[in-house]
Computed example of a mutant assay.
Amino acid sequence: MSEIPFDTARRHVLGLGCERGTPPAEVLALAVEALRAAGIGGAQLAAIASIDSRRQESAILAVASHFAVPAVFFDASRLEEETPRLKNPSALVFARVGCHGVAESAALAAIGADAELLLGKIKSAHATAAIARIGLQKA
């Protein structure tokens, strides 16, 4: 997407999903855990991505602010387009929000066709996180 500043250092997107009102500290801790699990640092993030119904969610915005990157949001129909590429599709998530995944789908959607999942969905008590990157062929 043109609004995300991808470059050779910042080629990853952190996808996040959370229940409404999830404490920012919980989502930030999950984000840090995701980065550690993927073996990357915050300086390698180009953006945070989520579903548009979380556009005003303080926890998502706090993570974007913490890493000083933009937050981008997608509607459920756009996220549903990513279902064939998900590692962890969920019928329960589909029943709740209209797409088979938020964190993985949002991370992939933010990059587009050249995206690949680096880290599939991980969970905390009230949130999910996943990391996508620009495909190595585009690096």
Results as ranks from 00 to 15, higher is better:
49 A>W: 10
98 G>D: 03
49 A>R: 09
102 V>G: 04
91 A>G: 14
80 E>S: 10
119 L>F: 07
51 I>P: 07
72 V>W: 02
70 P>R: 09
72 V>I: 13
62 A>C: 06
106 A>E: 05
100 H>K: 12
110 A>W: 11
123 K>G: 00
50 S>L: 07
52 D>C: 12
63 V>F: 06
112 G>L: 04
77 S>Q: 15
55 R>I: 09
91 A>Y: 00
82 E>P: 06
125 A>V: 09
64 A>Q: 04
98 G>L: 05
70 P>F: 01
75 D>E: 14
111 I>D: 02
63 V>M: 08
106 A>L: 09
96 R>H: 12
125 A>C: 00
118 L>N: 01
65 S>V: 03
120 G>F: 06
111 I>V: 14
106 A>W: 05
101 G>L: 01
89 P>L: 08
76 A>M: 04
59 A>E: 04
117 L>Q: 01
74 F>H: 03
59 A>Q: 08
98 G>I: 11
120 G>P: 14
79 L>K: 01
119 L>S: 06
99 C>A: 12
122 I>K: 07
121 K>E: 03
51 I>N: 02
91 A>F: 00
115 A>R: 13
82 E>I: 05
49 A>M: 11
56 Q>A: 13
49 A>F: 10
115 A>P: 14
56 Q>V: 00
57 E>W: 08
81 E>Q: 15
80 E>T: 03
101 G>P: 12
80 E>H: 13
112 G>T: 03
114 D>H: 12
67 F>Q: 02
67 F>L: 03
74 F>T: 01
112 G>M: 06
124 S>A: 15
90 S>I: 03
105 S>L: 10
96 R>I: 06
74 F>C: 04
103 A>E: 01
102 V>R: 00
125 A>T: 11
76 A>Q: 09
66 H>M: 07
86 L>P: 12
122 I>N: 00
55 R>H: 05
113 A>Q: 13
79 L>P: 01
108 L>R: 02
66 H>P: 12
58 S>W: 01
54 R>N: 10
123 K>W: 04
74 F>R: 00
101 G>S: 11
114 D>N: 13
94 F>C: 03
65 S>Y: 07
108 L>Y: 09
51 I>G: 02
54 R>D: 00
66 H>A: 15
81 E>V: 05
55 R>L: 10
122 I>D: 03
54 R>A: 10
68 A>R: 14
83 T>H: 02
98 G>P: 11
53 S>Y: 06
75 D>V: 11
93 V>W: 01
103 A>I: 09
112 G>V: 06
57 E>M: 07
49 A>S: 11
106 A>H: 08
84 P>S: 02
71 A>C: 13
119 L>C: 07
92 L>A: 14
78 R>I: 13
111 I>E: 01
81 E>S: 04
71 A>L: 09
91 A>H: 09
124 S>W: 05
105 S>P: 08
104 E>A: 03
71 A>V: 11
65 S>T: 15
90 S>N: 04
102 V>M: 06
79 L>R: 02
124 S>C: 07
82 E>D: 00
125 A>K: 12
119 L>D: 05
91 A>M: 06
95 A>T: 12
106 A>I: 09
105 S>Q: 08
90 S>F: 04
53 S>G: 07
81 E>A: 14
107 A>V: 10
89 P>C: 06
107 A>W: 10
54 R>T: 01
119 L>H: 05
123 K>D: 05
